[in-house]
């Protein structure tokens, strides 16, 4: 039986973790490699790096981080943030990323998704959709949630599936950072619209939210940052909880 996945996400800026696990015994709390290893040793099913480096000259740092992590981490590694084109994707994959998540570039030019999934295979192309409720519809936002596009998130999700995306990483902008739970309506609407796996993101504050994301939102995987970063729960505790609620997980 296929298991539901738990994916901790690390925000990386200028090659350093900015929101990380708050363990006092860490040698270097800002080292993404060490944090990724802790997650992987703790049973994380995948690791996600979100590069939030703002300046172009520091964008090189993520490649080094990915390269070092992939030599130590033997679970799948997804990298996103600032991925603009086929060359960026190629470079991240060559550095050892297993999947690349594309956000703004996919909205601006869906050919990036079409061409990259053809060239590298759908298995490594994740389209990240940042959506915000606007009236009775969800609108796609780009540039880390700053720019509105007027694009309907459900239609966009379907278009990305048709363009060759292997997975969708759906983040509710309304819920992100609130810790009140995923936007279940958004997740379930998109997951019933497409037939590729959906990773739910944005808003997790406790373990029941993970359960809801899977049971009610029909997500194949749940991504969370804060609840793991600040040591509120470990990945292992999260898995045990999901297991106790009858959700198939890798333990």
């Amino acid at each position: 039986m296929l298991k539901n996945r738990i994916i901790p996400c690390l925000d990386v800026k200028n090659g350093r973790v900015v929101k990380g696990i708050n363990f006092i015994d860490l040698k270097d709390a800002g080292d993404p490699v060490e944090q990724a290893q802790i997650y992987s040793d703790g049973g994380a099913d995948e690791i996600c790096f979100l590069d939030i480096t703002a300046s172009n000259e520091n964008r090189e740092t993520i490649y080094d981080v990915v390269e070092r992590t992939s030599k130590k981490c033997f679970v799948p590694l997804t990298v996103g943030g600032g991925v603009r084109n086929i060359e960026d994707i190629n470079r991240l994959l060559n550095c050892g990323a297993d999947k690349v998540s594309i956000n703004t570039a996919a909205v601006q030019n869906s050919k990036v998704v079409l061409e990259s999934s053809k060239k590298f295979g759908s298995q490594c192309i994740v389209v990240a959709i940042d959506a915000k409720l606007n009236g009775d519809k969800w609108e796609v936002f780009t540039h880390g949630g700053r720019n509105s596009t007027g694009i309907d998130a459900l239609n966009f999700a379907k278009k990305m599936e048709d363009s060759g995306a292997g997975e969708l990483l759906v983040t509710s902008m309304d819920r992100d950072g609130t810790q009140v739970g995923y936007d279940i309506n958004l997740m379930s609407k998109i997951s019933s619209k497409v037939n590729i796996p959906l990773i739910a993101s944005g808003g997790v504050g406790n373990l029941d939210h993970l359960v809801d994301g899977i049971k009610l939102g029909n997500a194949s995987a749940v991504l969370a940052a804060s609840i793991f970063h600040y040591g509120k729960y470990s990945v292992k505790e999260a898995k045990q909880y999901l297991d106790s609620k009858g959700i198939p997980v890798r333990i």
């Binding site: 039986m1 296929l2 298991k3 996945r5 292997g166 590729i196 796996p197 194949s220 995987a221």
Partner: peptide, 12 residues
Amino acid sequence: GKYRLPHIGWNQ
């Protein structure tokens, strides 16, 4: 359509 493809993740 009952099962999603790709088959992605951990299986026993």
